[in-house]
């Protein structure tokens, strides 16, 4: 029974069906339970959160990643799956906290001061949440002080900065400088991304990584996980 529920969660992640209303890829599934309904079932059946995450959610996301690489899936498919996983993680959060199981880590993301571009930032947030990270979205046009304050108070392990304008990318350096001044720089890995920036720029301002897209953001964070 529990095996079936986990398998169904995995399948529905692949289908990108958050709830029973979602159609997914294979429209015969309409009306059948989606990831959220299945999560309820799984928790009722006392299935361990670890199995749900590794055998259901993460296993499903892996298949989605493969389908995306082979061009069977498009970005909207990927996002639908990630959203389903993200919503499932929200449900699991209190359970995990009670069981003292740690998430993959806390990730704060912001579009820097002066910049209002947020499509890319939002996609990164959705995908990282779907990959099992606890994501805090600080919004757009966020001043350095606000970011520093969040890092000090909430202690995220990872910080993502987005800038799409050549005029706002320098603000990323300002944020890193402010973190240094507050002696917080070593407490957090800083990832940057957006059309204006590059690998070279990341090195210049002392960021930990430049990510060309949301997938490389997932890869970067996962690599830090392995290293730690």
């Amino acid at each position: 029974m529990s095996k079936d529920t986990i398998a169904a969660i995995k399948e529905n992640v692949i289908q990108g069906r958050k709830t029973q209303e979602d159609v997914g890829i294979d429209d015969t599934l309409a009306g059948t339970p989606g990831v959220m309904e299945l999560m309820e079932q799984a928790l009722e059946d006392n299935i361990s959160p670890q199995s749900i995450i590794t055998e259901g959610l993460t296993a499903g996301m892996e298949v989605v990643g493969e389908k995306f690489s082979s061009k069977e899936y498009f970005i909207p498919d990927m996002l639908a799956s990630a959203e389903a996983v993200g919503a499932a993680m929200d449900v699991l959060k209190p359970v995990l906290e009670k069981a003292k199981v740690e998430t993959k880590g806390r990730f704060a993301i912001a579009t820097v001061k002066g910049d209002i571009h947020d499509i890319g930032k939002n996609i990164v947030a959705i995908l990282l949440k779907g990959a099992g990270y606890e994501v805090h979205d600080l919004g757009i046009d966020v001043p350095a002080e606000k970011i520093v304050e969040f890092v000090r108070e909430e202690k995220p392990g990872y910080l993502g900065l987005s800038a799409l304008l050549t005029t706002t990318m320098t603000e990323m350096g300002v944020v890193i400088g402010a973190l240094k001044e507050s002696s917080l720089r070593n407490s957090v890995k800083v990832l940057i991304g957006g059309a204006a920036v590059s690998d070279e720029f990341a090195r210049e301002i002392g960021a930990d990584a430049y990510c060309a897209d949301a997938f490389s953001a997932v890869r970067a964070l996962d690599s830090y996980q392995k290293a730690s």
Binding site: V23, F74, P76, D77, L79, A80, E83, I119, N122, D137
Partner: peptide
Amino acid sequence: PQKLYINYIRPVL
């Protein structure tokens, strides 16, 4: 909060 229509793409994809 995200103000994106991406979810509505899938049914027509």
